[in-house]
Amino acid sequence: MLTMGIDIGSAACKSLILKDGKHILSKEVFPLGTGTSGPNKVFEQALANACLEHKDLDHIMVTGYGRFTFDAADSQRSEITCHAAGMHFTMPKVRTLIDIGGQDIKILRLNERGKVESFVMNDKCAAGTGRFLEVMARVMNVRIEDLGALSMQSTEEVSISNTCTVFAESEVISKLSTGVKLPDLVAGILASVAKRVASLAFRNGVEAEVGMSGGVALNEGIINALSKELKTQILVPELCQYLGALGAAIYAGKEAL
């Protein structure tokens, strides 16, 4: 049985093809989110990677912010449910899952079967999200993917006191104008994101092991800052960016039966 999961996020799209609910045949990511050509691109490319056609798939499930907008989908589920399934597939011992997406943060408590026991999400605020990092990277004129490496060069973290993205942007500009070192400023920004995420995590309760999903999990600086805040090492699966799509593919298999 071949199933595809597609995670249409606000900032990026991810797809993954699963064989018999166990073997990953193909995966794809594209840095464009819902309302763009991103969903079709990851759909077609994942098929091409595995030398498959649409008709070969038994079930397609879509998750993520744009889950209601993909016409080829057979069904949809929330990203919370799908990320949980994806994390359990890759790291079954994880009991606390942190997902930092383009525009929201989700903290999930999982049971031993990988089912969601409770979750919290941020409200309509970009603080601590991937969008926050994008804005800060733009202001500092660095690539978002370089933030982690830059933060590792820091010798004296610069504190960012504002949580609000708009206010924090002004604060970063102000700090830049005073001549602070870029790595120190980046470290401060990542620490502010970690504090925001940690405060949400504590609201839901943190139980080891703690894993992280989403594209932001690729940022080593965030992982370090968050591990420090939560006083536990954050585990990052190799497929961190694809966990939503993976979970959707797993559920697609269950629905196809």
């Binding site: 912010y65 589920r77 929330s78 990203e79 919370i80 449910t81 979750f119 999400m121 409200d123 309509k124």
Partner: peptide, 8 residues
Amino acid sequence: QSRTKLQS
């Protein structure tokens, strides 16, 4: 966001 929370 309410939709995601309620659906979840």
